[in-house]
Simulated scan of single mutants.
Amino acid sequence: MKPTELLSIIIPFHNEQEVIKECQQRISEAVKTIDMQVEMLYVNDGSKDKTLAILIELMQQDERIKIIDLSRNFGKEIAMTAGLDEAKGDAVVVIDADLQDPPELIVEMIKAWHEGFDVVYAKRIERKGENFFKKFTAHLFYKLINKISDHEIPENVGDFRLMSRQAVDALNQVRERKRFMKGLFSWIGFPQTAIEYSRDPRLAGETNWNYKELIKFAIEGISSFTQEPLRLATYAGFITALGAFGLGLFYIIKTLLFGEAIQGFPTLITVILFFSGVQLLSIGILGEYIGHMFIESKQRPLYFIKKTYTVKLDD
């Protein structure tokens, strides 16, 4: 008898031609011992190299593969969303293509799922192939966002995880355009547990996440899950205004009592620059939130699918 449960495995691909075949082989080996039917949802996120051609070649060799070819590069968060929308599994695994996260952990994830957990995430206890600065800034980001956010996001946890059908259905109801998936995975709730592992260096190719993209990602994550920066801007404005009022009162009294020669140009410039900096910072924070509102108000679709490839060549 065929297994009745279905496992969906989602992998976003963007210019990953160097790792695709090894990734497919590792995943195929990992699921051999799993007593479940398997579908592999490979999302091509606007790749410019041979990624799509290689995926089609692999699909012709393995009928479990389904390729979702997006109309352009929408970004990893949206590519994962497209895969989650298409996944039919009782359990759904999201994993990156670069094999830094070992597919072999899927077996342990399924065991934890059968024990009653709706979300089983992989937590890194070691991050090989990453320099000190990247590790330090990542640690600082999670400390900051968990300090100011109402929902705790596990540290040293990426997108590699298993979710139950119930958790996926809940996540698919959240259609915000600016998507910080690590936060959304945590926000939906449901029983969650961690599996620890050592993260390997990237198998081949180069990451699409440079420092500019990581900073942008961090800002979006913070502004998506907490209003605390707005409150901080308000506090800073109140404190500086109070200080300015006190300083102004001091100079008025001093001038009335003792007079004042024309001097203090450096002090004046320092004060002007300080208050200008506070104002610009506050405007920038406000702009981030207004930008989110602007994007959400347009209600554009999250993505467009150019074509769906299966062995039966169904569109």
Rank of each mutant, 00 (worst) to 15 (best):
Q192M: 01
P201T: 11
Q227L: 09
K216H: 05
I219Y: 05
Q227Y: 03
S198I: 07
K212S: 00
I195N: 03
F225A: 12
K216W: 02
Y211C: 09
T207I: 04
E220P: 12
E220W: 05
I219Q: 13
P191G: 09
E220A: 06
E206R: 15
L214N: 10
P201L: 05
I222Q: 01
A218N: 15
E206W: 14
R199C: 08
E220T: 14
I219P: 07
P201M: 01
N208Y: 01
E213C: 08
E213M: 05
F190G: 06
T207N: 08
A194K: 03
S224M: 11
Y211N: 01
G205Q: 04
S198M: 03
L214M: 09
Q192H: 09
F217D: 15
T193R: 02
S186G: 12
F185W: 05
W187D: 13
T226L: 11
P201F: 04
G205K: 08
F217Q: 15
I195P: 11
K212N: 06
S223Q: 03
A204T: 12
I188D: 12
F185D: 15
R202Q: 01
P191T: 04
Y211K: 13
N208M: 12
Y197G: 01
A204K: 00
W187V: 08
T193L: 13
F225L: 07
W209I: 11
N208F: 02
L203W: 03
S224Y: 07
I195H: 00
R199F: 02
Y197Q: 07
A218L: 03
P191W: 10
I219A: 14
F190C: 11
N210P: 04
A204C: 08
D200E: 10
I219R: 12
P191H: 00
K216N: 14
G205E: 07
S223N: 02
S224L: 12
K212E: 09
Y211S: 04
E220N: 09
I219D: 13
E206L: 06
E196F: 09
S186D: 14
A218Y: 04
K212G: 06
E220Q: 06
T226S: 13
Y197T: 05
I195T: 06
G221T: 12
G221V: 05
Q192N: 09
L214V: 05
I222M: 10
F185V: 14
I195F: 00
G221E: 07
A194Y: 01
E206N: 13
G205D: 02
Q227A: 13
S224E: 13
P201Q: 06
T193K: 06
S224W: 01
R199N: 03
E220F: 02
S198Q: 09
K216M: 00
E196P: 02
A204F: 05
E206C: 01
T193I: 15
E213S: 02
L203Y: 08
W209S: 14
S224F: 08
F190I: 10
E220L: 10
